[in-house]
Design a protein around this nucleic acid. Structure first.
Lengths: 232, 232
DNA sequence: CGGCACGTTGAAGGGCTTCAAGCTCTGTGG
DNA sequence: CCACAGAGCTTGAAGCCCTTCAACGTGCCG
C-alpha cells in the first residue's frame, strides 16, 4: 500500500517539488477507486478534478455524432488525466473509462493553480507533458493520413508492448491488458472485423497469438517490419 | 509599419506582460522576412528560435518515410510557431514553409526561458496555447478516424473561411489564400485527384466555385450540411 | 445451461487511391 | 510579344482496401 506522498513522488509532474509543497498538497488529497468499465467523467462535464493514476488503466474516448467512439489516449500508472482542462477551467474533452480496476488520486483545481503560480518548474513540467501529448497526437495524425490500417495496428501493438509488455520467453511478449478487437479498432480508426482479419492473418504467419481479449506477440521484429512497411 | 513592441502586444502570449518585461524583450528581437515557398526551418533541426508571425502565412509539414507530406498546422498573423520545441530544447517536429511572403519576429530561447521563470501568467498562456493545439489535433484524429474525405474537406474549407474568408456578396465567401488541390490533399490525408473530383462535384451543385489555387464558397451553409453529414 | 459479449468468416460493394493521359493556365526567357 | 516549359488541374479506368451487413461460432459467467 503506497501513500499519497509516495504516489506523487512517482509522478514526474510532482517529483521535483520541495518537501513543504509536497506535504501541503498530499494532505489535501484523497483516493478514488473505479471498477473496470466504470466511467470516471463524461465528455462535456465541467472539469472539477484531475486524476493521478496509481494502478490500473484508463482511456479517454470521444464520441462522434454518429455514435462511433474514438480512443484518444490511454493512461497508466503515474500518468495524470484531465490536468489541462482543470487548469484552464474547461470541460472534459472526452469520456474517461476504466479498462481495469484502477486506483486514482483526486486532484482538485485550487492547489494545482497554486503550484502553477508559485513553482515555475511545475509549469515547465506541465508544458513538457502537454508537448509530449501533442507530439503523440501529431504522430497519430500523420499515420491516419498516410498509412494503411495494417501498419497502424502494428504500430499500436508495438506501443502497447512498450507500455504493458511482459516477456514470455523465446522473444515473445504478452500484452498484460484486456484488449478486445473493438478496443483496437477504436484506437486505430477502423472496424473490429478488419482487426479480426488482420490478427488472423498475422496468426497464420506466426507473428502473434491471440485469444479473447488477450494478445501475445511471438515475433515482435516481424511486427516492426510491418509497421515500417518492409518486405517480410 | 508596425514596431516589434506593437506586434508583441497583438499576440495573446505577450499582451499581458508588464511594460518593463515587454521593453526588455522587444529590445532584443529582430525581424525576418521569408518569401513564398521558402523554408524557415527543417524537420529535425535543433530548435534555436521560435517565430511570431506578423504577416503572411506559414505551414508546418511532416514528411513520411514514403515521401508523402502531411500538413500538421498552419500559422497566421499573431500566432507563434516553434515555441514549445524552443522552450524544451527539442528538435523541430516538422518543416516550416511560407505559403505567402511573410514577416516574422525572431524569438531566441533565452529570453523566453526568462519569462517562463519569472512570469507565471506567461506559463499559463503557453499552457493555454498548447491545450488549444492539442484540442485541434484531437479533433483531426477523430475526423480522420471516423469520417469520409468529403466531410473532412468540407470542414477544412469552413475552417479556412473562419481564418481567411472574405465576403463576396450574396453570402459568398472567397478564401484569401493561394490554395492548391495538393495543399488541400495534404491537409486532409488524401490525394489531389480526390480533392479535384470533390470540388468538381460541389461546383456542379453550385456550392463552390474554384479556379487555379483559388476557391470561392458560394453557399457556405450547404458546405456546413456536408460537414455535418446532413441530407442536402 | 442459456444468454450475451466477443470473435470469425464470407460476400458485396463503395470510397478512395493509383496510374495514365491530356488539358489549361502562368510565367519566363528568347 | 510569343512560345514553350512546367505547374496545376481534370477526367477516366482499374482495382484494392476497407467497410458494412450478415450469419454463425465460442467461451465466459450468472
Amino acid at each position: 500500500m503506497t501513500t499519497i506522498r509516495e504516489a506523487l513522488l512517482a509522478c514526474a509532474l510532482f517529483a521535483d517539488l520541495p518537501d513543504a509543497a509536497l506535504d501541503a498538497l498530499s494532505g489535501s488529497l484523497r483516493w478514488q477507486h473505479v471498477e473496470r468499465g466504470e466511467v470516471l467523467f463524461n465528455q462535456g462535464d465541467e472539469a472539477a478534478f484531475a486524476y493521478l493514476v496509481t494502478a490500473g488503466r484508463l482511456r479517454l474516448v470521444q464520441h462522434t455524432l454518429e455514435g462511433k467512439d474514438v480512443t484518444m489516449a490511454t493512461f497508466t500508472s503515474t500518468e495524470v488525466i484531465g490536468l489541462i482542462v482543470v487548469l484552464l477551467g474547461e470541460q472534459y474533452p472526452g469520456t474517461a473509462e476504466a479498462l481495469d480496476n484502477a486506483e486514482l488520486i483526486v486532484l482538485p483545481a485550487p492547489p494545482l493553480w497554486g503550484l502553477l503560480n508559485t513553482h515555475p518548474a511545475f509549469s515547465l513540467k506541465v508544458i513538457h507533458m502537454l508537448a509530449d501529448r501533442l507530439h503523440e497526437a501529431h504522430n497519430r495524425i500523420r499515420e491516419l493520413s498516410a498509412e494503411r490500417v495494417q501498419r497502424r495496428v502494428a504500430r499500436s501493438l508495438l506501443r502497447l508492448v512498450e507500455k504493458v509488455g511482459v516477456a514470455e520467453g523465446h522473444g515473445a511478449v504478452r500484452l498484460d491488458i484486456r484488449l478486445s478487437r473493438q478496443d483496437l479498432a477504436q484506437m486505430n480508426g477502423t472496424t473490429l472485423e478488419t482487426i479480426s482479419r488482420t490478427l488472423s492473418a498475422w496468426e497464420d504467419d506466426g507473428i502473434v497469438e491471440s485469444a479473447r481479449e488477450q494478445i501475445v506477440i511471438l515475433r515482435p521484429h516481424a511486427l516492426v517490419r510491418v509497421a515500417d512497411d518492409l518486405p517480410m
